[in-house]
């Protein structure tokens, strides 16, 4: 009984360990030639195609909400001249990476987990290994790289669309002046904000793809197992991404002191 409880309690640690080991395997596969260029391009195209439109659609209300909140708050402080800058900060630093992570995990990661899971239960992965081909090098590495690339790209998209959405909202609905919005861009925001957004997106893409691949490749128990794998991979990725987002933000603020307007 005691061993049963302890083994249950320790199970998540075991899983975390296996996930980490899987990540290392992927890291090793990264340097194994030949690199699967075709698979990489196909996957990047595929992940981009399932994420671009939802991302853009999510980014607009994100930008609008931020403009609304920040705009209201800033008016109370009487610092309207910083509206544009505050929106940029909020979108580029936080909303961009968060929206990216939602879409990468929800749309990209679930597609990867479903694809690999289906291959696993159809014994395609076994057949591949028997034919002397390592599925990690062949299938997982291109997916991880594609996911990272698309994540960075999406992050850029969210930033642009979010800022534009904020602009429209601020200028059209809140009677802000276009000049003030644009002119204040660089008042608080700085270039490293952009870099850290991209760094976050890269890491998010990496985590989402690795978790999805791991869950997909370890699916078992028929079609239901694939469903479970997809579900678990999305939930685990969400939790990991939010934690990692926090940690990376905290580190960023230590490294790069906020600009004082």
């Amino acid at each position: 009984m005691a061993t049963l409880t302890s083994s249950r309690a320790l199970a998540p640690i075991g899983t975390a360990g296996k996930l980490f080991a899987f990540g290392l395997d992927v890291g090793r596969g990264l340097f194994r030639r030949p690199f699967q260029m075709r698979e990489f391009i196909q996957q990047a195209w595929f992940i981009a195609s399932v994420t671009i439109i939802p991302t853009a659609l999510v980014a607009i209300p994100f930008g609008a909400v931020i403009a609304l909140q920040v705009g209201g708050l800033i008016k109370q402080f009487g610092a309207q001249s910083f509206t544009g800058s505050a929106a940029v900060l909020a979108v580029v630093r936080e909303a961009g990476p968060i929206a990216t992570s939602l879409l990468i995990a929800g749309a990209g990661g679930s597609a990867i987990a479903a694809d690999l899971g289906a291959r696993k239960i159809r014994e395609e992965l076994d057949a591949m290994m028997v034919l002397g081909i390592d599925p990690i090098q062949r299938l997982v590495v291109p997916r991880v790289l594609a996911c990272m690339l698309v994540a960075v790209f999406l992050n850029g998209l969210v930033s642009v669309v979010g800022v534009a959405g904020g602009y429209v909202f601020n200028v059209v609905l809140q009677d802000g002046t276009p000049g003030a919005y644009l002119a204040s861009f660089t008042a608080l925001a700085q270039l490293p904000d952009l870099w850290q957004g991209m760094a976050k997106a890269l890491v998010f893409g990496l985590i989402a793809a690795i978790v999805a691949s791991y869950k997909g490749m370890n699916a078992n128990g028929g079609p239901k197992g694939v469903g479970d794998a997809v579900n678990e991979s999305v939930v685990i990725t969400f939790m990991l991404l939010f934690v990692v987002n926090f940690v990376m933000s905290a580190i960023y603020f230590q490294l790069v002191p906020p600009k004082t307007g």
């Binding site: 289906a118 291959r119 159809r122 014994e123 395609e124 076994d126 057949a127 591949m128």
Partner: peptide, 8 residues
């Protein structure tokens, strides 16, 4: 393999 395991 039991179900052929063709690459889909």
């Amino acid at each position: 393999f039991q179900d052929g395991a063709m690459f889909g």
